[in-house]
Simulated assay, not measured.
Amino acid sequence: MNNKARILVCEDEPALRNDICAELVEAGYEAVGVRDGNDALAFLAEGRPDLILCDIAMPVLDGRGLLDRIRDDRPDLSTVPFLFLTAFSDRQDIIAGKLGGADDYLVKPVDYEMLLATVSAHLRLVSRVEIAVNDRLAQTREALGSAENGHYSALECLAQALVIVDREAHVLYANPKARSLACIGAGLQLDRALSLSKNNALFIDALAEVMADETGMVRSVIVTAPERDREMILLIGRIAAVEGVQRAALVVIADPGTRSIPEPDLLQAALNLTPKEAELAALLAKGLRSEEIADVMGVSSTTVSYHLKNLFAKTQTNRQSDLVVFILSLCALSPSR
């Protein structure tokens, strides 16, 4: 098979490790065998597997210890399936393993037909998620490009609530998700004529600041949605001229209460980001300013600008407003609470 999936087999019994690797190779995979958790960590420092098959009871660093280390120290491996292989078949032990972060549990003696079927199933699931991510990002990129040319039809299908306004806060467009909100309190109100309420000084001030800025900043305004008993975030960023309007802004309505802001782990896996880039991307989507992000991350503003430049390159965006929408386009793929 082309582009063979790489399976890391962590098993301290040499004969069993060799047999498992041989079965995997015969099935068309690339198999890498290691004898314990420390050897696995050494391999992971240099390479990335597509799936990890790991015995629980091993000397030095056992399977649970390895899983904990990976979950704590290697968020970049969060999408790599981790399968436990164990002689312990007790139901509670299996439940405990899955609650501890394992994706599946295979019991010794090894049923190789079951092992291969389980491996194949998990790899297919990862592939489906990757396809869904790529499709969603491509859809968002196309929609943002269409908006710049005054064509809003592509924005209709996006899951984010998006509003486009001019410098006077007149609504040029609101997609179905934004229209469904209708009224989210005093911060942003869309009546039947889709006119923007101008009684929120914070919003108007943020809009003016964004319109006057040449660096592509995004500003955020927190508004209360009484009928939803929680706050909403309005993220405001300038976009290219649309429909003859010299300057326009994109307003993204984010609802943290519905997990509309993806976790850094998901961003890292979906967009091939470094941990710092993923952290910055998540903070941007929450509406933090660059100086606030620098404080949270404990880095300088120069470092924030460096990571932001890399984010633009990796997401093929040019402005923070587009980048924020791009990040939020993954919201439907975030795990539920």
Rank of each mutant, 00 (worst) to 15 (best):
R219C: 11
R219Y: 11
I222A: 07
I222C: 07
V223T: 15
V223L: 09
T224A: 11
T224R: 10
A225K: 04
P226V: 00
E227R: 13
E227N: 08
R228L: 15
D229W: 06
R230Q: 11
E231F: 04
E231L: 06
M232W: 09
M232Y: 12
I233Y: 02
L234D: 01
L234G: 01
L235A: 10
L235S: 12
L235V: 08
I236R: 00
R238W: 00
R238H: 04
I239E: 01
I239A: 02
I239P: 00
A240C: 10
A240N: 09
A241S: 14
V242K: 00
V242W: 00
E243Y: 01
G244C: 10
G244L: 08
G244S: 03
G244W: 06
G244I: 13
V245M: 02
Q246I: 10
R247F: 08
R247D: 09
R247C: 04
A248P: 05
A248Y: 02
A249L: 14
A249G: 15
A249I: 10
L250I: 10
V251S: 01
V251Q: 03
V251I: 15
I253P: 03
A254L: 07
A254G: 08
G257Q: 08
G257R: 04
T258Y: 03
R259T: 13
R259A: 13
S260P: 00
I261R: 02
I261F: 01
P262S: 13
E263D: 14
P264S: 08
L266S: 04
Q268T: 12
A270G: 12
N272F: 06
N272L: 13
L273V: 05
P275W: 06
P275F: 04
P275G: 11
A278Q: 05
E279V: 00
A281L: 15
A282E: 09
L283D: 03
L283Y: 08
A285I: 09
K286L: 14
K286N: 14
L288D: 04
S290Q: 13
S290W: 05
E291I: 03
E291Y: 11
E291G: 03
E291T: 12
E292T: 09
I293C: 15
I293W: 01
I293H: 03
A294G: 05
A294C: 06
V296T: 15
M297K: 07
G298F: 06
G298W: 04
V299R: 03
V299M: 07
S300P: 11
S301G: 13
T303H: 13
V304P: 08
V304Y: 05
S305W: 00
S305A: 14
H307W: 14
L308P: 02
K309Q: 10
K309D: 06
N310C: 10
N310V: 01
L311G: 05
F312L: 12
A313K: 13
K314A: 14
Q316S: 15
T317G: 11
N318Q: 08
N318W: 02
Q320V: 11
Q320W: 03
S321C: 15
D322R: 10
D322L: 07
D322I: 02
L323Y: 07
L323S: 01
L323M: 11
L323R: 00
V324M: 01
V325K: 00
